[in-house]
Design a protein around this nucleic acid. Structure first.
Lengths: 225, 225
DNA sequence: CCAAAAGTGTTCCGTCTACACCCATGG
DNA sequence: CCATGGGTGTAGACGGAACACTTTTGG
């Protein structure tokens, strides 16, 4: 029985994290300089090898936790990448995962300790190996899903203004959105809940803060924004 | 350098093929009884281990070719599945691929030699391990993409009637479509080309045969059907 | 001659888009 | 008092959905 498996060869499997954040009205990506060979010094996603005692998604969550100290983060598999020579050193198949985090939740000292930086997605440098390809696929998925899944809230604090929410959509879709039309659509969604709190940081007049209501959303069948 | 990799462990990596076909107005899936332990006798997708000298997609194409004798088939990665105990024998991470083939292109003798059968998707039995999950994800992707990508033609012969095309959409989406609206939309798509050939098999009156024109499609930016 | 599938347009309704001005306040 | 971002409604265009009858011909 084990003989059946024995005929075949094993390979290294790693996970790579595509970590998106949102700040200053820009979609950002967390990347760092590789600190190991091969590819030392090149810009790269943050990743790690899959261990025997963990599933792929567990590995991805562990790697993200190691990097950010954050748990229970939105993560989605982007896909497996398995070109023979994608890793110049050894045969390594990798599974890319996309995570959405709120940049304010990420301790900046921890970030520096790991030597990673927030880079504007539209100014992304050339990355190690096939990492650009992974990012591209992640962005495509994100764009496709942002309109029908409640992803944007993962990039924002718990309370946010409608203008902030709109900026997230604009950053992800790469186009400007009409303010009145956007707010009209939001108004139709019960699970985007207006609070009595007011944000006075970004405007003198102040803006109402909204909240994503998970319970309300659970009752929702489908939405478009 | 190799020491860096040496700290980590390797795992078996396989590919599994989710092969869709279309026949008798039904979407069908190719499955067979497992001929090996663990899980001998259970319904299962057809798969194989990834070799050292091939990429993931090459492995998937090889496995599909072994099974069907078909090459240059539409194939799309569905995702990686990596639960620790998903394979009862050894740790195996698998990457699922979805293929769309025309059932008439598949030699029936070859099918029997491999001991696989076409099963209606809506009558799918319980499959080995996490294979049902893979199929579910593949179907979800298929439904999402059928409206914006020219997938349906992979399931049909080169020449097809509009009724056949409509049946493909109905089978994939699991709902009936209004004939006049459907044909109105098709008429708006230049890359679905009317030929002078007439099919007399399915109706006494006869129906015009159409063809998917790849060159026309290449000039298309986006479509909806 | 009739059963069975092919083929064909119009109307209605809801949704999306474009668009401009007043409000509140801190400095 | 003015610069800055917050907040609001309407009209017209467009696209999607509903809907029924005529045509052809093999058996």
């Amino acid at each position: 029985m084990t003989g059946f498996y024995g005929e075949h060869s094993k390979v290294f499997v790693s996970v790579d994290c595509i970590v998106f954040g949102f700040d200053h009205n820009k979609l950002k990506l967390l990347i760092g300089r590789r600190q190991m060979d091969p590819g030392r010094g090149e810009w790269s996603l943050y990743g790690g090898f899959v261990r025997e005692d963990e599933s792929l998604s567990e590995a991805a969550n562990r790697v993200l936790f190691t990097l950010t100290g954050l748990e229970h983060i939105y993560m989605k598999q982007v896909g497996a990448f398995g070109a023979i020579d994608r890793d110049p050193g050894e045969r390594v198949i990798t599974v890319a995962y996309c995570a959405l985090i709120n940049v304010n939740d990420y301790d900046d000292q921890l970030r520096q300790e790991h030597g990673v930086e927030w880079v504007n997605l539209d100014e992304l440098p050339r990355l190690y190996s096939d990492h650009n390809e992974m990012v591209l696929k992640a962005v495509t998925l994100l764009r496709r899903r942002i309109g029908t899944e409640p992803l944007s809230f993962n990039l924002l604090p718990e309370l946010f203004t409608l203008t902030q929410l709109q900026h997230v959509y604009e950053a992800i879709l790469g186009e400007t959105i009409d303010k009145r039309n956007f707010r009209k659509r939001v108004k139709g969604l019960e699970f985007i809940e207006k609070t009595e709190h007011i944000d006075k940081l970004t405007s003198k007049r102040g803006a109402y803060l909204y909240r994503f209501n998970k319970k309300m959303f659970a009752q929702e069948t489908a939405f478009k924004l």
